[in-house]
Amino acid sequence: MTGDSDMSGATLDGAVIAVAGAAGPAGQATVLRLAAAGATVVAADADTTRLGEAVDAARDARAGATVTGDTVDLLDLAATRAWAERTEKTFGRIDGLVHLVGGWRGSPSFAETDLADWEVLEKLLIRTVQHTSLAFHDGLLRSDRGRYLLISAAGASKPTAGNAAYAASKAAAEAWTLALGDAFRKAGGEDGPRAAAAILVVKALVHDAMRAERPNAKFAGFTDVTDLAEAIAGLWDRPAREVNGNRLWLTPET
């Protein structure tokens, strides 16, 4: 799968999609794209200021778009469950959770790895996946087109010496997401899964502010956040059986 497919005709009218980590550049692009496609978007982030900016931009993108913002502590399972339950109760359904919570820590070499980095990344990149997947599992199964989408990095399957903590965290998050996909597969029985869990893999992400800061950089192999958002929106158009349990590469597979 590549990020250059034309999803301009995709419609998500009637879908209710939650976005975790909505205030970052990728989150803002995703909220904007989903709202433009007609989805009701329930955005969450710990940064209330940037979250408000993302919500306002998405509302402006489509007249009448329903976009809400919640400050949710995704490291608190009870709070995450409450967010999922509140979303489904308010809008009557939940059709997706897009996980865009990120973070990076690295070291000059493997021997210089600081295990404090692991403690941070384990919370950001693994614990938030565990909590959102457990909280939204039942609601996504009740949907006729539920999607749980994790954004991951190519380094998870080809780690480098200085990225041991980061790559291991991403690999664990991928494994957890694939286990969720297996749960969806089993729940679907002979008819196949109704919901899907999948991983979109990038080398790294780039956005306009990065280009402005480094005008001479080529960002080779990077995925623009708008292309990522386009790919995300298109996954509701594809059958759950085709999406579920897969790594979908937006960069050359390693």
Results as ranks from 00 to 15, higher is better:
T177R: 08
A23I: 07
W176I: 14
A198Y: 02
G3R: 03
T160N: 09
A220E: 15
A37Q: 10
R147A: 07
S157N: 11
T90V: 03
R241N: 09
D73M: 02
L205C: 11
T226N: 15
G64Q: 14
D227L: 11
A43V: 01
R142C: 08
K89M: 07
G102E: 14
A63H: 13
R211W: 02
D208N: 10
D45M: 02
W83Y: 13
T40W: 05
R185L: 08
G181R: 01
T71D: 01
A135F: 03
A15W: 00
I151C: 12
G9A: 15
S157P: 00
T226C: 13
S107R: 11
L180A: 04
A116L: 00
D47F: 01
D6E: 02
A171D: 00
R185K: 12
L250N: 10
D237L: 13
R86N: 14
T113G: 04
A171L: 10
D182H: 12
S152W: 02
A229D: 04
T226A: 15
D13N: 13
G9K: 11
K203H: 12
E119S: 08
E119C: 01
M7E: 07
D114L: 00
A63Y: 03
V72P: 04
A135E: 03
A217L: 12
A39H: 11
D76I: 00
K123C: 09
Q28D: 03
K123V: 01
D182K: 10
A233R: 15
G3M: 03
A195T: 06
A161P: 06
G245H: 06
V41R: 11
A84Y: 01
A10N: 09
A171H: 08
I151V: 15
A167V: 01
A220G: 09
P215M: 07
W176S: 11
A217Q: 13
